[in-house]
Design a protein around this nucleic acid. Sequence first.
DNA 1: AAGATAGTCAACCGCACACGC
DNA 2: TGCGTGTGCGGTTGACTATCT
Length: 234
Amino acid sequence: MAKASQSVEKRTLRKGSWSPDEDRKLIAYINRHGIWNWTEMAKPAGLQRSGKSCRLRWVNYLRPGIKRGNFTREEDETIIELHERLGNRWSVIASRLPGRTDNEIKNHWHTHLRKRLKYNSVSTSELFQISNVETGKKSSSEVDLPPAIAPANSESSSAIQLSQQFSTDSLPSSGSKPAAEIDRYQTTEDTLVSSETFGELQSILEQPFTAEGSSTADNYGAIYAEPGISATSC
DNA sequence: AAGATAGTCAACCGCACACGC
DNA sequence: TGCGTGTGCGGTTGACTATCT
């Protein structure tokens, strides 16, 4: 493609929040054709978005199996535990929290957990009590969390409904390119395989958690047992 | 009631890496 | 081997919302 037309395209690309209509288009396209090339997909999908933007929206928001809403105490503890071991390796941490995205975990860390750890002399379980006193203001996801799944806003909710709706015939098991390509996006753990430190990470991750509870393998099964998403392809 | 301030989170940006040619 | 392209990741930003004064 010529440089001139590329720059024109760049100028016409939409930025900012996604509309429900855009969400619908992206989901519909992916369900029909699968994920084959983010930068090329946007146009035939009818979206004036960059490939990056589409990918981000899908991975963090529209993908089936995304868990929205408040973090549970177990999830919080898992994040804290893993962050102690791994640092800001959000994608690795996300791989241990089925249904949570690295972006969401990162945000949650910066907005909730990090400040709790300022009280770094206390145990993780005590952090949950401290948060009550400390924040005083908003109590959104802090303590005694309900198993909330309620999305933050109406747009989110519509996106999720759409996603779930589409997921019934979900990620393409047939079609021109999909299966092999899509596998790449099914699990964050797969992305670790290529890492030179995979072994190292795995050994770290396989150490028992005090707080991890039921959050890993079992839930993977549950999450990815959604229609149209095979656990094996994860 | 209205403005100021703080908190939250979706989305963007830039960089690094993998891969194909 | 070097280059171009696509993708993934982590840091950061900015709009929106909640709370305070």
